[in-house]
């Protein structure tokens, strides 16, 4: 880190943050319309998510103590920091430092902050929801990290922008989607788990535990949580895009790839119900982990797919 370049880098990071917010929130609204057609209805307007967030932030809410507020701020701070590290098309705020593990662990700061503030509200349903979210994390993180291990081992670098650049060199055929298809499938299933889409929506589960961690939120804390949700979707989908679909060199490619991943995930999730939490773990430790290990063995020992 060079001290005099730091302010410029931070400003670039903040610009990425703003772009990510507007892009993802609009895309959320558009996806709601697409999903609504699947349900045989029209769906709300494309800017509905902006309206929701604005309304929530301007309401007077209720607070249960300092850890409730502090946890939300810590969570949002951690997620925002993760977004600032994310490479976006040609712009990387901190070139050379966008290591894969930073994303995983800074993301964990966000989860910890949210878990802390949810349980700090004093509601047992929030505790149950957080328990389920953490258990689910054990399910989806391990296969995902094994596939990424294969990628990093194969290409020799864990920097996201470099991985994207390597994939862009030879066109579509050098995408990891094409060279490591088994791993991509396993990673996509884990992506569904990360995004919290059905069938892995266990930790929200409105009909069972009344929205789990979010049961006691309202007003600006809920608004901040919605912003956090949009940012986390951005991080996860961008991660998947950079690792498997070759990143994006221009805005059109970025838009198409991002939308393809996110809309496909949403449509798949609408045709499925919700698993119970032990079924989630049993599922993740059968097929995705087998695929992930297979892919890793192929890359590490056989050298295929590099």
């Amino acid at each position: 880190m060079v001290i005099n370049q730091l302010p410029l880098q931070i400003l670039t990071g903040l610009a990425i943050l703003a772009f990510a917010f507007f892009w993802q929130t609009s895309l959320s609204g558009i996806t709601r319309k697409i999903v609504a057609r699947y349900h045989k209805r029209y769906g709300p307007k494309w800017y509905q998510e902006f309206r929701d967030i604005f309304k929530l932030m301007s309401k007077t809410g209720v607070t249960h103590g300092w850890v409730y507020d502090f946890g939300v701020m810590m969570a949002l701070g951690g997620i925002m920091a993760t977004v600032m590290f994310m490479p976006l098309m040609k712009f990387t705020a901190f070139p050379g430092f966008d290591n894969f593990f930073i994303y995983v662990y800074l993301f964990a700061v966000g989860m910890l902050g949210m878990a802390m503030s949810a349980v700090g509200s004093g509601n047992p349903l929030a505790g149950i929801g957080v328990m389920r979210a953490l258990t689910q994390m054990v399910g989806y993180e391990v296969p995902f990290m094994i596939v990424v291990l294969a990628i990093i081992n194969g290409h020799g670098t864990s920097s996201l922008s470099q991985l994207a650049a390597i994939q862009q060199q030879a066109g579509v055929l050098s995408w990891n989607l094409v060279k490591m298809p088994i791993g991509t499938v396993a990673a996509f299933i884990c992506l569904l788990g990360m995004l919290g889409k059905k069938p892995f929506e266990t930790f929200i589960a409105p009909a069972e535990i009344a929205s789990g961690p979010m049961v006691e939120y309202g007003g600006k804390q809920l608004g901040m949580l919605m912003i956090l949700h949009q940012f986390s979707i951005f991080i996860e989908v961008s991660l998947f895009m950079n690792l498997f679909l070759g990143g994006a060199a221009n805005p059109l490619g970025f838009a198409l790839k991002y939308m393809a991943v996110y809309v496909l995930a949403s449509l798949i999730s609408q045709a499925m119900g919700r698993f119970k939490i032990d079924q989630v773990i049993k599922f993740f430790y059968k097929i995705p982990i087998a695929l992930a290990i297979l892919q890793a063995v192929m890359v590490v020992y056989l050298g295929w797919g590099v």
């Binding site: 349900h39 045989k40 209805r41 009909a207 069972e208 609408q270 045709a271 499925m272 119900g273 919700r274």
Partner: peptide, 14 residues
């Protein structure tokens, strides 16, 4: 509702 398959709910209500 309880299982999370909202698509069925919307179709049936239509």
């Amino acid at each position: 509702g309880p299982t999370g398959l909202y698509t069925a709910m919307y179709w049936a209500q239509a």
